[in-house]
């Protein structure tokens, strides 16, 4: 095969066309990333900073608030992501059934939460899950509970509330990917399995799930990244007196802690940068792990 070589002038034009985008990327992506890496080695508060080597990393290991934020974030991740992915697959499979009536309505209804405003839905959730909110009232009216659940006041229930909220918001978003993948599967594969006497549960477990594996990997990776950056919900729904992560830091996440370190407390920019690099390392490690688990086995 002959190689097509670009002339010198074509090369220049190509770079000229790319220049605006590259400049923006450099200013708003590359520079902050590199600068924050440099900052993560700085100690001190406000503008009073000096190079501290690995002091910030040592501080991480001694900081109970950081450890709590890390634990909370990992709890959200480990519990919420699998629940959401399973729900999204089940919803997609159910809504892919051509015999289901009102498919378009349900698809839209399940997808809509992810286009609502973060703050608006957070405020609504906060009011719905208040001690005398509509959720407690309904559960009591149905005699499922005898006294109101302290959604916002107790650490356990506050975590549950955050998990419910982000699951509600993001399940439909993930479902769309599964629906798209399901519609690409040749229908006759299922017909062949039906004729061959493969029961419905086995068609789901042995055919649908393996065929969705690339999409499961993709949605797991983006959901992992999203959950590690979880901020809006814990800064709004479980905020108390304007401070997020309540009660008693039980819903404090890494992103919220970075925000607090930077803007709420006396600015500790170097340490905040170190915490954000913890998220970077976690994302890299977890993504690598997920790719490893989902690899094609010989």
């Amino acid at each position: 095969m002959g190689k097509f070589r670009l002339g010198r002038s074509e090369n220049v034009y190509a770079w000229l066309f790319l220049a605006p985008a590259l400049t923006l990327l450099a200013i708003f992506m590359v520079y902050p990333i590199l600068w924050s890496l440099w900052m993560s080695f700085q100690t001190g508060k406000g503008v009073n900073t000096q190079f501290g080597g690995l002091a910030n990393i040592y501080r991480l290991t001694q900081d109970p608030v950081f450890l709590r934020a890390l634990t909370n974030t990992l709890i959200f991740l480990i519990i919420q992501v699998p629940i959401m992915i399973v729900l999204a697959i089940l919803a997609a499979v159910a809504l892919n059934d051509p015999k289901l009536r009102g498919r378009a309505f349900f698809r839209t209804a399940i997808f809509l939460p992810c286009v609502t405003s973060l703050v608006a839905y957070s405020v609504l959730f906060k009011s719905m899950f208040a001690t005398d909110g509509v959720v407690n009232d309904t559960l009591m009216w149905l005699h499922i509970i005898s006294s109101p659940i302290p959604w916002l006041a107790q650490p356990f229930w506050a975590k549950c509330l955050i998990i419910i909220a982000i699951t509600w918001r993001w399940t439909g978003y993930n479902m769309i990917f599964f629906l798209a993948a399901l519609q690409n599967i040749d229908r006759s594969i299922y017909e062949a399995a039906r004729i061959d006497g493969v029961p419905a549960w086995a068609r789901f477990v042995y055919l649908t799930v393996p065929m969705l594996k690339p999409v499961i990997l993709f949605t797991t990776v983006i959901s992992t990244i999203g959950t590690l950056q979880l901020f809006d919900e814990v800064n709004n729904i479980t905020a108390s007196g304007g401070v997020g992560g309540a009660p008693a830091d039980s819903t404090l996440t890494l992103s919220l802690y970075i925000y607090n370190l930077t803007f709420r407390f006396m600015p500790s920019l170097g340490y905040a940068a170190t915490v954000s690099y913890v998220i970077v390392v976690l994302v890299a490690l977890l993504t690598a792990l997920q790719f490893f688990v989902a690899r094609e086995r010989k």
């Binding site: 040749d186 006759s188 594969i189 017909e191 062949a192 399995a193 039906r194 004729i195 061959d196 006497g197 493969v198 029961p199 086995a202 042995y206 055919l207 393996p210 065929m211 594996k213």
Partner: peptide, 30 residues
């Protein structure tokens, strides 16, 4: 599955993630 028939499709309808051996033996597992 109870009609005593087997069908071969135009698109083959093979299970893409299974080997030839698994494709042919899959139904027999059930």
């Amino acid at each position: 599955s109870a009609r005593g028939i087997a069908m071969v499709f135009q698109t083959y309808a093979l299970y893409p993630h299974m080997t030839v051996r698994e494709n042919m033996g899959f139904a027999l597992r059930f």
